[in-house]
Each structure stands twice: as C-alpha cells, then as structure tokens.
Computed example of a mutant assay.
Amino acid sequence: MNCPLCNGDGIPVNGPDSRRFYRCRRCALIYVDSADYLTEAKEREFYGTHQNDINDEGYRRFLSQIVAALRPYLRSGMRGLDYGCGPVKMIETLLAEEGYACTSFDPFFHPTELQGPYDFVIATEVVEHFRNTALEWQTMIELVRPGGLLAVMTELQPEDRAFSGWRYARDPTHTSFYCNETIEFLAASFDLVILFSDGKRRLVFQRRLGSVQQV
C-alpha cells in the first residue's frame, strides 16, 4: 500500500498490534494498511467509550495546551472552528471564556454545516485518524482563510523508543502517525508556515496567501 499522504513507497515496520504498518520513504508518515481499518460502526463505538466530560479538570487542562499555543496569534473579532471536537464542545467553551467565537464540528457527534473560511481552525487529536490523509488535510486547510491559522495537536513519533513500543499507536482508530519530518513535508506541500512547534504534540501553522497545493 502506498502512502496516503504523498503516494510514496512504504516499507513495513513492526507495530504494537496485529495491524500492518508502513513507513513512507518520502514523507516518513507511518500508516496502517487499509485492510486493517475499523468499520465506521466499530470506530464510532470506540469513540463512545471515551469518558470526556466538560467538567473534568484533567480533560480541560489537556485541551488548554493547544489554546495556550494558539493564544499569542489570536486577535479580537476572529472567528474559529474546532474541527473534530468529539462529543464535548470543550475547545469552544475554553475560547468563549476568553472572548473568542468558535464553532464546533464533528462528523459523528456534531455534524453541523461548515461556513468557512475561518480565521483559525483547531484540530485536537484528529489528524491521526485520517485515512485518505492528503485529501483530509487539504479539506481541513481549505477551511482556513489565506493568512489564517491552523492549530493541530497530535502526538509525534518519539525518537527515543521503537514504534512497536509506542502506546499512541495501540489505539485502533489511529491510522496516520507523524514525526517532525512529516510535519515539514506537510508545511511545504500545503503552503503552510510553521509558527510554533513544541516538537512533541502541539503545532500552529499559518496558511500562506494563495491556494493549497496538491501533494
């Protein structure tokens, strides 16, 4: 199976479970063989097991990390979108407390009509679920106005341990795994400027003025 991000050749890598994993020679994305994807029903069922609660202080602190990364770039009057919010509109709540307007969208739990482009889009724990990875990144980026912001939170592949021992890869709904090399590839391919990266899980991009490029 070729890479779903750049169509490059993939080489098999040992994973933490029985699914088949490949690492792309071109963009370094690790991806799951499409034959091992969960069905939509099973995927939704798994999401339903998550114990996310708007009153949970731990959950609040976890999502506050991406708000903190984005905050220096926000300006009064901006309009945003939480893309793939899950069952709880926590990001929308956090931003409302700071005076920013944000709409929540999730294809399973909040399938509202999207009315972009937005000044900023936030995607927390979303991009690792992408299957048609290039198309799904392009769809998400096109919701951002040229010059606008895209904040992403996804755990990047650690350099100090083998992929087979990485707990993040054990989630059966996770199908695309990124490293810093993949992030650089994404930025170059989709006309994004990396404004901030902590090298671990938090990223803030700015969409360049102009059109999104195809990879």
Rank of each mutant, 00 (worst) to 15 (best):
A151D: 08
F177S: 01
G148P: 14
F205M: 05
A35F: 14
H129Y: 10
T103M: 15
E155G: 07
P172R: 05
R208T: 12
L70G: 12
Y73E: 14
F190M: 07
S64Y: 15
E184C: 01
Y100D: 11
F196V: 02
F120S: 00
S189K: 05
A134Y: 07
C102S: 05
L70E: 15
I183D: 01
L38E: 12
D160E: 10
A69E: 05
D36Q: 15
R145M: 11
F185W: 01
G148C: 09
L5Q: 09
K200Q: 07
S76L: 14
R131K: 13
Q214I: 11
Y73D: 08
I11Y: 15
L195F: 02
W166Q: 02
E45I: 07
Y83A: 09
D160C: 01
N2T: 05
S34N: 07
Q115D: 10
T124S: 15
E181H: 07
T112W: 13
R201Y: 04
P117D: 03
A101E: 15
T133N: 08
V126I: 12
G84T: 04
C179S: 13
R61K: 15
L29Q: 02
E159S: 10
D198E: 01
C85F: 00
Y47D: 02
D33Q: 06
Q51V: 06
F120K: 00
L203V: 00
I194G: 11
G199V: 08
M153I: 09
L195M: 06
C85G: 02
T173V: 07
L81C: 04
P4R: 01
I183H: 02
P158E: 10
I183Q: 03
A35P: 05
G165H: 14
P72G: 08
F108L: 15
F177A: 01
V13H: 10
Q213R: 14
G48W: 13
M153D: 01
C24K: 03
G148H: 05
Y100P: 09
Y47F: 07
G86K: 01
R23G: 00
R25I: 11
V215P: 09
P158N: 03
V152F: 15
F185A: 01
A96F: 10
T175S: 08
E113R: 10
F130I: 11
V212E: 05
G84A: 12
N180G: 06
D9F: 14
E45V: 06
M153K: 03
Y22M: 06
D36C: 14
I66Y: 14
I183V: 13
R201Q: 03
T175H: 05
F185S: 00
F46T: 08
E45M: 10
R44T: 06
Y168W: 11
K200L: 10
R20V: 11
I141L: 13
F21R: 00
L74H: 00
E184H: 11
S64W: 14
E113F: 09
A96P: 02
R44W: 05
I183W: 03
A169C: 12
N2A: 06
